[in-house]
Every structure is written in C-alpha cells, then in structure tokens.
C-alpha cells in the first residue's frame, strides 16, 4: 500500500513543481478535447436539433442508429481513424496520423453521437407551445432554430458535459491515432496508461488526479452557470 500514498504525495509534488512533462500532457489533453468539443458541438447541435425538431421519414431509424453509435467503442473508432489517416489510407496524403488534429477527428467522432442524441432529446422535450409562440412573434427559420436551441440550453449543456467527459477520459483513440508521442500527442490518459505499464504509479496517480480535477471544475462551473441564470 505504501506506493499508493507515495503516489499521491508525488502527485502533488509534480503539480506544485510544475513538472514540464505533466503539464505538457495536461495542456495537450485540454487542447485536443477543446478541438473535438468545438467541432462536435458545432456539428452536433444543429444536427441534433433537426433530428429532434423535424418529422421526416426514417427518423426513427436514424435515432436508433445514433443511439447505437453512443456505445461505439473508442478502440474501434481509433482503428477506423487510424486506417483512414494512415499514409496507405484514403486520407493519408494530409499527414494527420500521430498529430493532435488527427486525435481530434477521432474524438469528434466519439462525441458527435452523444451531442446529437442528447440535443435531440432536449429539443424533443421542449413545449409544443414554444414553436407556436415563436412563429406568432414573427421569428424566421434561423431565429426559430437559435431560440429553440437557447430554450433547450440546459439539456444541451448536459449533452456537452457528457460528451466532454467521454472525450476527456478516452484512451483508445489518443493512443492509436496519436501514438502517445511525448511532448506532442501524449495526453493525460495515454500517459497514465504508459506510466502504469512502466510501473510509475506516482505519475499515473498525479495525472489521474488532474483529470478528476478538470472534470470537477467543468461540472462545478456549469452548475454555477445554471444556478445563476
């Protein structure tokens, strides 16, 4: 048990002394997850809105597909994106394998179904009167979309937090697509996997604590925002 206590002590040492390797992994994680979240929210919120708001043929089938994708294993996404981005793959010419944008693509694929499905649910649960009210007040199609999304903001925030949690903690995509390159594509989770395999529990625990801390800060600030508004 000694090494666990030791790990926790070491964790704080690393954080307080601003250990370059630790901070590089933290920064990389924040960067890549921000890219992935920006892309998946920008794509997923409108798509989720249409899925929840409009009635069209094949909607149920589409919902089922999206819901199935929620359980997409990260290693499978990693494998797919790896195959796509490899020099021998169809997108090889862009040289995205083992880069952060490559990892961000994989994580976007991971987060997108979550954002779409939860946004659709949030929009579906909006009052039927909202649409009538907005049209009665003269909203055009674009304004209708924006206001509906704003009215569903708490549901969409939940979608974003859920997706962020998944992106932040996944390891399969980062490891396979990113290659766990030190100073470049080593994220908190891939570093933890590596440090554990090396038997360096302290570093692993330190990074795990940081991950928890980030999750806590994100959730706490959302709760604060929610209470304030």
């Amino acid at each position: 048990m000694g090494y666990i206590t030791e790990g926790i002590i070491k964790a704080f040492e690393l954080l307080i002394s601003r250990d370059a390797e630790t901070y590089s992994a933290i920064l990389t994680t924040l960067k890549v997850s921000t890219y992935a979240m920006t892309a998946s929210l920008a794509l997923g919120i409108p798509l989720g809105f249409f899925l929840g708001f409009l009635d069209f043929r094949g909607k149920k089938l589409l919902r089922t597909i999206v819901n199935t994708l929620l359980a997409f294993p990260t290693v499978l996404i990693g494998l797919l994106v790896y195959a796509l981005l490899s020099q021998r793959g169809p997108l090889g010419q862009y040289g995205l394998l083992f880069t952060l944008p490559g990892v961000a693509i994989g994580q976007t694929i991971l987060a997108l179904p979550i954002v779409i499905a939860l946004t659709a649910t949030a929009v579906e649960s909006l009052d039927r009167q909202l649409r009538i009210t907005l049209l009665a007040l003269g909203a055009n199609r674009y304004q209708l979309l924006c206001t509906c999304i704003w009215e569903a903001r708490y549901g969409i925030l939940t979608a974003a937090v859920t997706a962020y949690g998944r992106v932040l903690t996944e390891v399969g995509i980062s490891l396979m697509v990113g290659g766990n390159i030190k100073w470049h594509t080593r994220t908190i989770t891939t570093a933890i996997a590596l440090e554990t395999s090396k038997g360096e529990f302290a570093m692993g625990i330190a990074l795990g604590l940081v991950l928890l801390l980030i999750a806590f800060v994100v959730n706490f600030s959302l709760m604060y925002l929610r209470q304030r508004s």
């Binding site: 766990n180 390159i181 100073w183």
Partner: peptide
Amino acid sequence: LQWIAVGTGKALKLGQNCD
C-alpha cells in the same frame, strides 16, 4: 525528433504503412 514507442513488430508495420 518525435517517436512512437511500440514493439518491433508494430514498428516495422508502421514503416511498411509509410506512417
């Protein structure tokens, strides 16, 4: 220098794939 640390088998495969 950026390196990807894997087993030799995987390393050869990465080379074969031009990655």
